[in-house]
Every structure is written in structure tokens, then in C-alpha cells.
Design a protein around this nucleic acid. Structure first.
Lengths: 239, 239
DNA sequence: ACGTGTCGTTGCGCCGGCGCAAACAGGCCG
DNA sequence: CGGCCTGTTTGCGCCGGCGCAACGACACGT
């Protein structure tokens, strides 16, 4: 077991041992996975880079990927943290395009990759796959649109609450103290996810810690009072 | 001709008479269109509403739809203006969900609609359709992500420039004075599209009009100096 | 022509949150 | 153990842009 360098990257317990493509019939899934190439990405390394030609798409087998989009003038936006069973870079299947964003490994990560011709063949061979991907794409579109609306209608603190809860639901683990986000997450990264600065995140988390809503340490956050935080994320009001 | 109440809604000249689903083979397209129901939406009326159960998806045959997402506390975000040949509300095909946004007609608009079972059958019958939709979804996802990043990294004026150019490319018409956006577009709508307020839009357009970059009237905008505007939209600098 | 309603413009004051700077905290290595 | 590196905290000043309010401009109906 050499994957343990960064703490537990435990897959949620309900997932299968060889994870992937939830929502596709098992035997088809096996056939599809068999045609891909396994690949290991060390922690912190990019799997693919925004701007470089998109030749392959990937499925996370174990570990976690952070999907970020960079802006010329320095800023960057974090769109998703994806885990086992989730797919990324479907753009690669169409045309000769560039990756629209960058995927970097959070903790040691294993992926399965397909090149364009192979994946195209799979799509034609298994229409179910195309339907599954369409559904995923539509869901993600909805999520980004929701976040766009929030970014332009809500105050920073409200967005930060939503961000914490969203990440918590997707990657949280129950502990005695509350729900722990089980991968290293810095103030800067939360700021990039929320659309603000690390200063504001820091100040806000400090305040919430005084309120007893969260407990936090270096790159480590536990939500101790989810209920109150949910209420705040919906109303934007402390009361 | 009773459609002329709101000015010309001329389809781009290169589109076919019965428009739709660019990118799908013509005979398949005909078969698909034949299975849908035509429907007319008067100017200003909603085709479907955010929050109500999503039972049908639609293709624009003629006219134009504005896709908006509303926020509880009053604000709203405009995501797209779609025209002939473009599809919307693909969510309706999966599960029993609610529409994630509202579509309202800009000018008198004709659409073709399919209910869930019919469209599902079509998807299974014509795998090419699913692939086309997947591609469209991925493209839109990319666009929204791009706009999200801009919203959180760029100043209002820069975003406004990008918005104008984007709408111009998609719905512009050449005139002697420059490129005219050929549907009524108020300051408020531009603000909702850009993520700002009508005040700021008004001030900015006034300034640009002094510079000779645009000419504008009541719900009517012409880009007179696209080149300079493009440069500004990329650098954010006047020089 | 005149009233009315809708949309656009602009002056002004205010504030959320950015961002520099400086100090602090914890993990890691020699 | 002490130094170092990286992440975090907090004080403080500044400013982009919001939003009220008041006015102006244009389109339309009768």
C-alpha cells in the first residue's frame, strides 16, 4: 500500500471495488473499462492541462481530482472536486480542441483513460454510455449555472457557506466532532472555489469558529453545526 | 404578417427553411422533427418556467428565446439567447425534475416540443441524436464555466465588453453604421447578462458612445468599433 | 398635441470586501 | 532543538461599483 502518503483516500463505502460509471449496467461497464488504459497521477501533479490539445478523456478510479480554470491575470476558479466513478474531459471526444481547464491530483490518484477513436467507438457501440454522459453533462451544466447565479447575487459569506456544504456533502466523512472534509483544503483553495480572497475566507472561518459552526486547522475543516450553516446559506442571515 | 411588431426577426441567411439540429444528418432530422409538436409562443410569454415540472424539451424553429435563472432575492441572470436550430430543456428527458431556468420569448417565436417518452424513444432510435446533444451540452458547459471565471476575475466594464461581443457574434446584423444587435435589448437585460446593475451599464455605454465604440438607443445597440472593443475585452485597458 | 408609461442618464454617498503588510502557528528536516 | 517553509490571522486604508433619487427622452394611445 503505497497510496497512503496523504492520509486516507477512502472511497465511499457503497461504491464497488472497481469503481466507475455509476448508472451504466455492470457488464457494459466492465467492457468499457477494459478498453481503457490505467494511469497513475502522483499527488499534486496535473493529469491534463488547460490549453493543451485534448486527446483523451478520463475516469477517476481512486483518489481525487481538482478541476480548475485559470484566468490570464492570475486568478483561478475551482469548479469541482471529483472522486471515484466520475468522468472528466469529455470534450476530448469531439473535434480537435484544447482542454478547457486543468485537472490536478489531490492525493495519489488512479485514472482510466481513453483516446478519441476508442471512446468514439465505445459511444457508438453502447448507446447507453452516451445517454449516461448526456445526463452527467446536463447535471453539471445545472450546477455551474446555479453557482454562477449565486456568485452574482449573493454575498461572500453566503457563498462560502454553500461551498462548504457542497464540498461536505460530496467529500465529507462523519467524525465525533462533526463532518470532516477528508482532503487537504487550504483557505486559498476555498477562496478560488467561492470566488473571493483567502483573507476574506480566513476572517469568515475565524468568526464561524467563534460561533461554533466549524472547527478548522491547517488545510483541514470540520463542519460542527451543519444545520445552522444550512440555514445561513439559504437566508444569508445570522438569525 | 403579424410578426413584425417587434422589428425583424430574420433568421441568419445560411439556415434551412425548416431549421433545426444543425449537425444531424438531414433525413434523420426530418424524422425527429416530424415526431414533435409545433407550438407558438407570443412575444414576452414564457415557454416554460423555472421550478415547474420539466415534461417537454424544445427546439426553436423561428424567433428567439431568452434563458434566465432567478434568484430568491430578486436578482436574475441571463444565460443565453437562443435562436432557430437550437435546443433547450434537455433536462426534461431525465428523471422527474423541475426546469432549472425560465425561457421567455423575445419576439413571436415558434418551437417544436417533445415529451419525455417520445424523446427518449428518439434518443434510442437515433444514437446520432444523443451524440449531438452531448456535444451541445459540453459546449454550453464550457461557455458557462468561462463566464463564471470572467465574472469572478474581471471588472464590470471588461465583462460588459465581452457580453456585447458575444451577443453580437450570435445575433448581430451588419448595417452601414456597424453591427446591430437585432433584437430589443435593454440596459437592465444587459446588466442581468453581465452580472451588474442597469446604472453601471448605462454609465459605461455612455462613455463608450463618447469614444465612438458603440451607438445606442432605446433597447437598441450597435457596435461601431468592434476591433477596439475586442482589444478592451481582452486586456481591460483603454490603451 | 398632450398626457402617460417605460426606459435611460447622472450626481452623490456609502459600503463590502480586496489586498498590502506584518506577525503568528505548525509541520518537517537536518 | 532551532531554523525554515508554508499556511493562517488580523489591522488598516482604499476603491469599484451599487443603489437611491431626480430628471430627461422617447414611444404610444386617444
Amino acid at each position: 500500500m503505497m497510496l497512503e502518503t496523504l492520509g486516507p483516500t477512502n472511497p465511499p463505502p457503497h461504491r464497488p471495488a472497481l469503481p466507475g460509471l455509476d448508472g451504466v449496467a455492470p457488464q457494459i461497464r466492465e467492457a468499457i473499462l477494459a478498453r481503457g488504459q490505467r494511469n497513475r497521477v502522483p499527488s499534486g501533479q496535473p493529469l491534463y492541462r488547460q490549453g493543451s490539445p485534448a486527446r483523451r478523456c478520463y475516469l477517476v478510479a481512486s483518489g481525487r481530482l481538482k478541476l480548475v480554470k485559470l484566468h490570464e491575470q492570475g486568478k483561478e476558479a475551482v469548479f469541482r472536486y471529483i472522486g471515484p466513478g466520475e468522468i472528466t474531459a469529455v470534450v476530448a471526444v469531439f473535434k480537435e480542441k484544447a482542454y478547457p481547464l486543468t485537472a490536478v491530483a489531490i492525493g495519489d490518484t488512479q485514472v482510466v483513460g481513453w483516446d478519441r477513436p476508442t471512446f468514439m467507438a465505445l459511444l457508438r457501440e453502447y448507446p447507453e454510455l452516451a445517454l449516461h454522459l448526456l445526463q452527467v453533462a446536463v447535471e453539471r451544466l445545472d450546477e455551474v449555472q446555479t453557482r454562477y447565479l449565486e456568485l452574482n447575487a449573493e454575498q461572500v459569506q453566503q457563498r462560502l457557506a454553500r461551498a462548504l456544504l457542497r464540498i461536505m456533502k460530496h467529500s465529507g466523512r462523519r467524525t465525533p466532532d462533526g463532518i470532516l472534509i477528508d482532503f487537504p483544503l487550504s483557505r486559498q483553495e476555498l477562496a478560488d472555489y467561492t470566488g473571493t480572497t483567502l483573507y476574506t475566507v480566513s476572517r469568515t472561518l475565524s468568526a464561524w469558529e467563534k460561533n461554533g459552526w466549524v472547527a478548522s486547522g491547517r488545510e483541514r475543516i470540520t463542519v460542527t453545526d451543519p444545520h445552522t450553516l444550512v440555514k445561513f446559506s439559504e437566508t444569508g442571515e445570522t438569525d
